[in-house]
Structure formats: C-alpha cells, structure tokens
Amino acid sequence: MLVVLTFLNVLLGTRGYAGSWVQLLTVLLIWAKGSLIIEFFMHLHTAPAFWRGMVHGWLAVVCAGIAGVAVW
C-alpha cells in the first residue's frame, strides 16, 4: 500500500509543478503529501494523540501560513 501511496505522492509532486499557477492547489498538495508522510512513513497513526497532533499541527500551521500569503 505504501508503494502506491509513494507513487501517488510523486504524482502529486509533479502535478504541483505543472499547475504551479494554482497556488492554493499547491498548498493543498503539500498538505496531502505531508499528511501521508506523517501517517504512513512516520507511522504516527498508531502513536499517542499528542504526538500525532503536534506533527499534524505543525503541517497545518505551515500550510495555513503559505495559503495565507497565497490568497492575500
């Protein structure tokens, strides 16, 4: 399953490049890729909520910051 997700990840990465004019979409892709890494690579889906929350929170804050500028 992770192999498929990895390919999905790569696909998303290159899509982000092709459609770089859609800034929000790019941010969304960052978030999607980051979440996949956090959940499956880092294997935080079996971790205590605190740690899972902290890392997801980090990703969310960074993405929100980027999105904030994109729409501003």
């Binding site: 990465g13 982000g16 490049y17 770089s20 800034q23 790019t26 941010v27 892709l29 960052i30 890729k33 980051g34 890494i37 956090i38 690579f41 880092m42 294997h43 990703l59 960074v62 993405c63 980027i66 994109a70």
Partner: peptide, 24 residues
C-alpha cells in the same frame, strides 16, 4: 524506528520546502 522517524522528518520538511521555494 528512531532513525526512520528522523529521516521521514527530513523528507517531510523537503516536501514543504520544495513547492514553497521552487514552485509557489
């Protein structure tokens, strides 16, 4: 697990850094 987690962190940071600096 620890070594892996560190590596994934490096990966995670790059996954943000790449679009942010190169694409956006």
């Amino acid at each position: 697990w620890s070594a892996g987690a560190y590596w994934h962190m490096v990966d995670l940071v790059w996954v943000v850094l790449f679009p942010l600096v190169y694409l956006l």
